[in-house]
């Protein structure tokens, strides 16, 4: 299996592009995902990754860079969810459900109208093997920017995730960092669209981060571990997808889910295995 993959890697440029892009996306989603799960915003991650779809379609229609439309719609969705939640008795998960399904439906219609060369199926489920050189470089640059912002504002993201009340009390702009994180999330969602597709992006955001969470007692260790698991899942998933001729996006997601399942049983914070063993002995 390994030989077949490495031979393919040496022969086909598209496979090299796919590997680089998938691993970069795995790393950057692993990093941003840590803040998403620690803030209890996994559903928000899901919502934003779906909400970028109409933005992408409108960008095609207007002939502008699709990052512009995607960021606008990602932020719009996040503001809308917060607005519905804070101005009614509707709970946040309900507001998220209504918003993201409406945005997804609108996106599907607009992509039909745009009649773009990009297949809707590929937007929804990804097509990493079709990544062009330009897409690869955009992914690398955008991911670099996202990682740089996380590095620069690491302290602020840590404090506003852990104790937002303390941060707000001494005057830190907690909302500004919330929306900065939403912008990063949108950027990751758009860049990951080609790798795993809109539907499965949330898995790349939360599964490696949740796996890393089971092993660490420090945020920066969690971030590095999550990035590593995200990158490794992407590489292994792509290999499995290529060798067995199955959808690469789905095999990437399933590989990261497998890492989580193993960790769920054996990790030190979640010692299910030792608990079961103990129960058996008793």
């Amino acid at each position: 299996m390994l030989n077949y993959f490495f031979e393919g890697l040496q022969t086909y440029h598209f496979l090299q592009n796919a590997l680089v892009t998938a691993v970069v996306i795995g790393i950057v989603s692993g990093v941003v995902g840590c803040f998403i799960i620690l803030r209890g915003m996994s559903l928000m991650g899901d919502a934003i990754s779906h909400a970028v779809l109409p933005g992408v379609a409108i960008s095609y229609l207007l002939g502008i860079n699709f990052y512009i439309g995607a960021i606008a719609f990602g932020l719009f969705a996040s503001i809308l969810i917060t607005f519905i939640h804070s101005n009614s008795v509707i709970k946040s998960d309900t507001a998220i459900g209504i918003t993201f399904s409406a945005f997804l439906a609108l996106g599907v219609i607009l992509i039909g109208i745009a009649n773009s060369s990009t297949d809707l199926f590929h937007i929804l489920f990804g097509n990493v093997l079709a990544v062009q050189d330009l897409d690869k470089w955009i992914t690398i640059i955008v991911s670099g920017v996202v990682l740089l912002v996380v590095w620069l504002f690491y302290r602020q993201f840590l404090l506003t995730s852990f104790d937002p009340s303390m941060a707000k009390a001494f005057g830190m702009k907690v909302n500004a960092y919330h929306y900065l994180l939403m912008i990063l999330l949108t950027l990751v969602a758009v860049t990951a669209m080609q790798t795993v597709g809109t539907i499965l992006i949330v898995a790349m955001l939360i599964t490696p981060a949740a796996t890393a969470f089971l092993y660490t007692k420090r945020l920066h260790t969690m971030i590095f571990l999550s990035a590593f698991i995200g990158g490794l899942s992407a590489a292994l998933g792509l290999m499995i997808g290529y060798v067995y001729n199955i959808a690469a996006g789905s095999s990437i997601v399933l590989t990261s889910a497998l890492f989580f399942a193993i960790s769920f049983i054996f990790s030190p914070k979640q010692p299910l295995w030792s608990k079961l063993k103990q129960r058996k002995e008793n």
Binding site: L38, L158, M166, F170
Partner: peptide, 23 residues
Amino acid sequence: QKRIAYVEQKSQIDSTFPITVEE
């Protein structure tokens, strides 16, 4: 504002957060 320290009820703070005592 920078001269204000606020400690919320400790039950409101997520004790599973990956942060050490020192941090």
